[in-house]
Amino acid sequence: MNTLAHHVLYEFKAGLRDKSQLLMNYLFPLLFFTLVGAIMTRLDPSFKDRVIPAMAIFSVMCSYLLSMPAGLVTARESGVLRSYRISGVPSWSTLAAPVVASIGHMALVTLIVAGVSVAALGSAVPASVALFVLVWLAMTAAYAGLGALIAVVSPSSRAVNLIAQVVYIPSIMLGGLMMPSGVLPPALEAVASLLPAKHAMNAFAGGEGAAISLAALVAGAIVSFALASWLFEWDGTNSRAWPLRLLALLALAPYAVAMFF
């Protein structure tokens, strides 16, 4: 097993040992799924057709926006990243290992959500499992990239959750998870188009614009990871100048461009 694989395996085990990660990766999304599944399918019977992609996106957001960035910033502040650096751990593997490890957790949660939705809520199995997996991977990569970028630009562990909420809450409200994004007023629909959640829901639904949304997710992931690697800091105090950190907003550019197609 190579070095990165060992690192990923450690991060995966740490995700099971750490109570806060366990909460954000499993308990919170599954509890939310239970409540939403029970309530929303009564209010809106068509929700059972969206519940699998919606809850998959929700789980991925919990992990990559609420859990992983906070973990990375805490590691930076407590000197863990400096310990990595003096021992030759490269910056890309410091970012990649928790991302890849969380894919394992998210895949497990998505399988549980899909299984329970089909069995208990009467949701249909995705028409193309291969396409579903492809969109899921692109969506996961897009949020993982954003999470890594949020961790890298956040000045402190107190700020990281606030910055993450700027993406997390609009994604839930406007991303088409709870209600179809078509019911939104045009101005809010434009805001929603800047969020990976809307493009992921589009791509999961298939049909018109799905390919563009998929491409936007992939491009968003690439831009986010590239910016995160470039802006990465080992130091406990993030000393990057704010104008440089604001370049992180470029990660939304692929989604903005997709609006014009």
């Binding site: 070095t3 060992h6 400096r82 310990s83 021992s87």
Partner: peptide, 27 residues
């Protein structure tokens, strides 16, 4: 070899894992 003044280690990492983890990165 460097021992930092505030040498942080991931809290969930065991002693055995830490030795293995950093040794692998040093090759």
């Amino acid at each position: 070899g460097v021992q930092l003044q505030a040498q942080g280690l991931p809290g969930a990492m065991t002693v055995r894992e830490a030795l293995g983890f950093f040794a692998r990165y040093r090759g």
